[in-house]
Simulated scan of single mutants.
Amino acid sequence: MSVRHAAASAANLALVAGFLGLSGCLGACAIGPGPEIGARAGLGCVDDSPECIQRRQVTLRHMVDDKSRSWVNEPPTPEAYASGVRLFAFKTKKKELSCDELKRGKLEADTAKHSVASLGNRLTPAQASRSVMLAGEVGRELQNEINRRCKTS
């Protein structure tokens, strides 16, 4: 493993850890347990409480394990971008996604950079910065995958 690759891997792990420890409660965490408990409960949960971290992990696992990848076509919310769950799912599944799904993910990553700003003061500057960094990283990775195996027309 090259030094550059090792540094990139370390940066990725730090980014993942940062998202799993986000602070400031939004969406599902703000309203407490309810009907959203389950497959999508982590999309709006961005604080660093054990409950929200668990929700994000469960949601990410569910999305990654979903063979139909139905989540790809679900409209994301700004909170979903801030939680990082959808972007991590795209990042994790990029080698399995169709070209259309990759393009949708790339568009979503590009949109996430601007959508997070719409949350205003509901995110700390660090949370907003991490969200934008993750969106940029995922967007680049998806574009590389598109360039590698999708024909441009």
Rank of each mutant, 00 (worst) to 15 (best):
K91Q: 08
E108W: 13
D110V: 00
A112K: 09
P78S: 10
C99A: 08
V116N: 02
A126G: 11
T77A: 08
N121P: 11
K106P: 01
P76S: 04
E79I: 01
S115T: 03
E96I: 10
P76V: 00
A117H: 07
F90A: 01
N121W: 11
S68L: 06
S129R: 09
A117I: 00
N73S: 01
W71F: 06
K94Y: 08
A109Q: 13
K95H: 03
L102Y: 15
E101P: 08
P76F: 03
A126N: 14
F90N: 01
L97Q: 12
L87R: 08
T111R: 12
A89Y: 01
T92W: 04
P78R: 12
W71A: 12
E79T: 01
V116C: 11
A112C: 08
C99V: 14
S83D: 08
K95W: 01
D100T: 12
Q127R: 13
W71M: 06
K94S: 06
E101R: 10
G120I: 05
F88Q: 02
S118E: 06
A80I: 04
R69W: 00
T124S: 15
A82E: 11
S68A: 15
V72H: 10
A109N: 10
R69Y: 00
L87W: 04
F88D: 01
L107E: 15
P78G: 07
A82Q: 05
L123G: 07
R86Y: 06
R104Q: 02
L119A: 09
K91T: 10
P75R: 13
R86E: 06
T92A: 10
G120M: 03
G120L: 10
A126C: 13
S129N: 14
L119D: 07
T92C: 04
A80L: 09
S118V: 08
V116R: 03
N73G: 03
G84P: 00
Q127N: 09
G105F: 04
G84N: 02
R86T: 01
L87N: 05
R104V: 00
L102V: 14
P78Q: 12
H114L: 08
V72G: 09
H114C: 08
L107F: 10
G120P: 05
K113L: 07
L102H: 15
D110T: 06
D100P: 11
